[in-house]
Nucleic acid binder design. Sequence first.
DNA 1: CTTCAATTTTGTCCAGGACAAAGGTGTGAT
DNA 2: ATCACACCTTTGTCCTGGACAAAATTGAAG
Lengths: 302, 302
Amino acid sequence: MNETLHSISAIERDTGLSREVLRKWELRYGFPQPVRAAQGERLYPDEQLQRLRLIRRLIDQGRRPGSLLRLDSAALEALLAELATAAPATLPPAVGDEVLALLTAHDAAGLTVLLNRTLTRCGLQRFVTDFIAPLNVLIGEAWLSGAIEVAEEHLYTEQLQNVLRAALSGPALGAGSPRVLLTTFPDELHSLGLLMAEALLSTEGAACTSLGTQTPVEDIIRLASSGRVDIVALSFSGAYPLRRAVEGIQRLRTALPEAVALWCGGAGLQGRRPEIEGVRQLDTIADCLTALADWRARAAED
Amino acid sequence: MNETLHSISAIERDTGLSREVLRKWELRYGFPQPVRAAQGERLYPDEQLQRLRLIRRLIDQGRRPGSLLRLDSAALEALLAELATAAPATLPPAVGDEVLALLTAHDAAGLTVLLNRTLTRCGLQRFVTDFIAPLNVLIGEAWLSGAIEVAEEHLYTEQLQNVLRAALSGPALGAGSPRVLLTTFPDELHSLGLLMAEALLSTEGAACTSLGTQTPVEDIIRLASSGRVDIVALSFSGAYPLRRAVEGIQRLRTALPEAVALWCGGAGLQGRRPEIEGVRQLDTIADCLTALADWRARAAED
DNA sequence: CTTCAATTTTGTCCAGGACAAAGGTGTGAT
DNA sequence: ATCACACCTTTGTCCTGGACAAAATTGAAG
């Protein structure tokens, strides 16, 4: 199950640590200590990948490799906990300003660099929950206040899509269970929420299939009833009328097989809580992860 | 001024060729042949960087390194020219059937694998012009004839976007000139054409900025008039009313600075040729490349 | 003309050594 | 005590040269 092994290039891509650094660390500090394939190629178990991600984050916090690499997992977790309490998951204002400055300067390349740097620095999950989620709010506010135009918002969306989709196309991300179908109702054009959910769920091993926006409810039902879907996830932006959302969700819920879970999230439902029987509401993007954990716990019972 | 020398990491970043490949080529084929710094570090002159870029492009076209690396710059340029005039290819029916089969089976993962395999096999340019372009037509026909549903078309679009955007986020793709702004008018939702154009133009070194779909004409004008854009490229799907397209294009053309080129393409304009003064029409997606070559030729005159 | 096996090409991986830039430490002067 | 400067340590990058597997090409047989 978690027997998956990663080549050194996979580790390089996932952690941002170059092959050469990985080899030197192994030589100098004895970690990571991958198993070897037939011809001596390094194969890193998941556990070591996780620990390397952790180390990477701590290094980015200003700590030095030499000390971190001699610690065991427990000590690293302790450091991480300390770090988590220090960082209250909100966006440093300077970062928000930097993004807005890049947008008003129409510097697409600069924005991509910033996004990618942040992604490799804090990992896909944190990137989505702690960076993109608050950033989206900021962008929305900036647009409302007239600080940026539609075009700049588009620019942001576009670059972010590039970065997220590239991250998603990594190797064997989300090849497991459950199988999640993501989409929006017709008239709902915003796809970023779907992409963020797909990213989060994929890192946790869910097999995501996104249909993008605007799928007719009949089509959703047909696909979800084929027996190859465990969860249907819908996203509603703030502009989507609550009444129409509730109506569609109810129709979908009754038409779907009972075994198929239905999750709904997005700004269009946030705050107001329709509470429909048999529908899981996701208040924040991070709720995807708890919902997934709950689904797995329940699935394990049966 | 052109005495600038580049370290091996700079070359890796600019060309996407790994250090290891660069060293092996030097060993095996005698090119590139960098000068050496005090401690033997490789330092590549600009000229070799240029030639490496060219080689990289030709490899992406499906040619093999062994033959290319033994050629001199003149022969390489000749190949590049020949490449621009290459015959338009059509899709083998078996491949189309395979794609349709995957779609009706809702096998997103299988489709992604197929797309990625084709991409790596024939390179980004050929992938777009010879594979995706005819495939899009096929998908469109399949939908019209009822062979596939909206959901399956969405599935196709989504997977293709993942693959194309991942390919685009490669290293230093499109960091040069000209600077192209890509988008669609409001009411135009189809983004695939933009993405394909962005992919093609980027491989040829254009600095593309896509705003995605539905940008207000005023915003396009504002951005394009900032002096940081050389070309504005618009896409119109078959569903877009011709009259509205022409109207918008004319308005845009008069409002844009004369120095900014305006390119328009997509099924919405194909066949009918409004022929607007000062507007370049792209009949096929591959026309992006010839238009780019023309633009560069004209730019070189001044 | 197709099919399958042999061969060549090509990218990736390995080990172990060297070195410079960045980070830390100690000493003396203000 | 604080600052500047010389010194040591840590750390990432670069080097050479060899091995091998996957992909592409070629050639032989059906």
